[in-house]
Amino acid sequence: MDSLVKSPWVVHYNCNSCNGCDIEFLACLTPLYDAERFGILHVGNPKHADMLVVTGAVNHRNSRVLRRVYEQMPEPKVVVALGVCTATGGIFAEGYNVLGGIDRVIPVDVFVPGCPPRPEAMIDGIVAALSRLSAKGRGQEVGPAKKDRITYQRPSDPAAEGKDDAAHRP
């Protein structure tokens, strides 16, 4: 049995979220969902954590914080991005200061879509990240996370420039 899988300690970073995902994430820890039965502990700092759970759309101001928090986690580590904002910037994508998805700043292992995702989905996402954590612990290479259900790309992204942009503008 891989011990990495049995005790994921999670640190949660709110990357300018609207707090919808945060409230749902905290619900995971309540008696109803009881994340601790999988050994999931919510620790308050990156130094003890195996898993970084991020909510919100990253912006210029807090991208360096996100990077530092990620750097200060000991290897092996995985990142779980909760909510659509972490994938694309969500409804904030057009903001003048918003960078977009957090995979522009740090490598992400699992995206959990939703606005906000349900607590069950969040726990599912964390458990899904465990296989990647275990693989990293064995020294295997894992590729970038899939974002297959998400089509929207921010205009500044050269690959998506000018395509879907007009359709989303009011």
Binding site: S3, K6, D34, D50, P74
Partner: peptide, 23 residues
Amino acid sequence: GRIGPPVWQPFYDVAKLWRKEPM
């Protein structure tokens, strides 16, 4: 009112921590 982790959880925790990077 929760189910809680298995009784062996502290062993898993220590075993996991031992495998982490000595930062």
